[in-house]
């Protein structure tokens, strides 16, 4: 009986530790929706006067990949975690650096988990 209780306690502890340490794709979507969708979302206004749709990231990737890869980041299955981190922290073209007071390290891990959830 005593052994069972100890084992159960250990199992709970292990689950808690796993929940704390393991990135959450669900929370990654929340963070992505807040920080990324205004440029990289899927729902865009119709064509703007300058030619693209209203979402700069999605529009730019559409032009860059010309259908060979999805323009919407959430549909990608090939994004490397290191690449996501490099772009978020270093910026790319007009996309600026994102600080840790904006997207924390654990939140970035969650975003990476979300964007790589369907990776091949």
């Amino acid at each position: 009986m005593r052994v069972t209780i100890v084992m159960a306690a250990l199992a709970v502890l292990a689950t808690a530790a796993f929940a704390q340490d393991s990135p959450s794709a669900d929370n990654g979507k929340v963070v992505f929706d807040k920080w990324c969708t205004p440029c990289h979302g899927a729902v865009a206004p119709p064509e703007m006067p300058f030619g693209g749709d209203g979402l700069p990231g999605t529009s730019a990737l559409g032009v860059k990949y010309r259908g060979e890869l999805p323009a919407v980041l959430e549909e990608r299955t090939d994004l490397a975690p290191e690449f996501i981190e490099t772009v978020v922290r270093g910026g790319l073209f007009g996309m600026p650096i994102t600080r840790k007071t904006e997207v924390s390290e654990s939140e970035l891990e969650d975003v990476i988990a979300y964007l790589t959830r369907n990776n091949n």
Binding site: P38, F50, S59, V63, F93, G94
Partner: peptide, 22 residues
């Protein structure tokens, strides 16, 4: 609030050239 104005400086179908970096 939106960020859609950045499409003017990003790569877009009309300019189709290297985007500005800033």
């Amino acid at each position: 609030p939106a960020l859609e104005i950045f499409a003017t400086m990003a790569r877009n179908p009309q300019t189709n050239e290297a985007p500005l970096e800033g």
